[in-house]
Design a binder for these strands. Sequence first.
DNA 1: CTGAAAGCGCTTACAG
DNA 2: CTGAAAGCGCTTACAG
Lengths: 343, 343
Amino acid sequence: MTSLDDVARAAGVSTATVSRALSGRGRTSEATRARVRAAADALGYVASASASSLASGRAENIGVIVPLMDKWFFATVLDGIASRLAPRGYDMTLYNVTDDPGQRQRLFERTLRRGRVDGVVVLSAVLTDAEVAALDALELPVVGLGLPRGELGGLRVDDTAVGRVATEHLLGLGHREIAHIGRSVGPAGPSDPAYDVPTRRRAGFEAAMADAGAVGTFVEGDFTVEGGRRAATALLGDTGGSGHPRRPTAIFAASDEMAYGALTAARELGLRVPEDLSVIGVDGHDFAGLFSLTTIDQFPHAQGERAGDAILAAVAGDAAAPDAEASLPFALVTRGTTAPPPG
Amino acid sequence: MTSLDDVARAAGVSTATVSRALSGRGRTSEATRARVRAAADALGYVASASASSLASGRAENIGVIVPLMDKWFFATVLDGIASRLAPRGYDMTLYNVTDDPGQRQRLFERTLRRGRVDGVVVLSAVLTDAEVAALDALELPVVGLGLPRGELGGLRVDDTAVGRVATEHLLGLGHREIAHIGRSVGPAGPSDPAYDVPTRRRAGFEAAMADAGAVGTFVEGDFTVEGGRRAATALLGDTGGSGHPRRPTAIFAASDEMAYGALTAARELGLRVPEDLSVIGVDGHDFAGLFSLTTIDQFPHAQGERAGDAILAAVAGDAAAPDAEASLPFALVTRGTTAPPPG
DNA sequence: CTGAAAGCGCTTACAG
DNA sequence: CTGAAAGCGCTTACAG
């Protein structure tokens, strides 16, 4: 490996000058800069990351904490983040937070403290108080995406509004018997921003239903296709019996993947979509267009881009960092799985 | 940040001893080791990655080069890799190779040469000769996964066999008019291992067809659901006309996502699956069970685990590295989308 | 088993 | 604008 000294010798200047010329920090005459660059190129010089980072305190690396890296939503957000970091010369190192307490503790109390990252992006992870404190103790810029407001703040879409818009789309078509498949950490009271994403979506659903004087059904789903299918089967399967709620004419699933599950369940039960049942999801999943799924697109790739820009701005110390607390856009995309109810 | 010196002072030993006690390299008495550990814990000491890396030459970080990080297959492989690195204390930093020549050159000639990684895993990327040379010049362990054999070697499933098994499944059911949706960098002659994954799958398809005395149809797909739908529509749409090949009774798609597209096309054209048309994919995608798709599962998560283990073994200098060139398993999973042809 | 010391390869005030 | 020098925080032969 050729070092700074080699370049300095070749260019006939000091190492300090080489460092300045190559990094652009500090002043250098145009002439020496050119000479140094030429020497560096000729030797194929690339600065050592560890030496540079040790001396400067800058790692040029962003850590991203992600709960599930093999789910479409997160993978897409990651791609969005990476697309903004790479052109600016920043690396992205991934940290998977699992449910294993030992693994988590190690991440927050050791790995992240090794000084390898200049900032961290936290994606939709539910953190304990201790973990939030650990993140804080890092004294590094942190940008959250889709976190409960209480934790760290950061970028979020207004998920209560998402839930409301989805529900109102269904209500507007004339549905009254509407079920919601989602997840909930507690009673979805008012749109308490401290709640997590699924809870806020549910709150929006319930608020819209209440406004319409209707009462919705809620069923737990686990944000997988299979979970959506199970929930929808329970919802659509048992009709008749006394005490049972009427079968819904519409389902609002808190994710597109669960909506796919609901479509599958409907098909298995011989129900036609949208004639017998309307289905709407959330995300803007890759396959949504193909399945003609009506959904609330939340532009996950763009979310990643925003998060990437935000963490870079924070690392650069831009107090101007415009959108570190911004509300992200979403849009209703009407397709073929929603229509007026039968009859 | 508390440093090695702080710990040394607290424990009443030299910094050298602290380093040895904490890292486990070199000898230390049980007693001092305990004392040092206690002091380190009390102070919350964590070694600086850059200092440690600069002094030792070890980065404890693996670079992963991936062409598409938002596709299910790659996201799943990445998850598999990460699951093996984290417990061993290794970080994973992601490098996305796009089609942009400038970005690629920067990656191979600068970023990767900063000494930030101890080894690199390359996922299914088609590299130029210059890029392979650059990788070589790194003098770092490299593990490939799904690369054309010519490039770098590494782990692979026998994709020619995959193509053959899928095709023979269809032939075994009695199909003769079989179409393959895939991609091909050139004529899929014999099972030349220098060819990339899609080409080898095609070669297996053609070999199996030839063995059965049948002639298959080949159509380009781009490994997306939409691409599969387009290809299948072309295949199934135009029947009658003179000169046109007969409509296939079975489709072998080179990926599950393209198979989903084929299923969609069939539905749109009013064809029943599997009564009118059989469809088989490759991958073992998350949704395959739900869509009842017959497929060749290639266990992507396990592939990632293997790649993770392999790069770690290579970095550790295990000449024993058992499976750096191994052939990965795959399995036919028969479900509801394949059946004997009509009539 | 332990310590003193050199060295890893940069960056950055500090002078000039 | 440029150079000499200290320093970033570890690791590792080398002695003992």
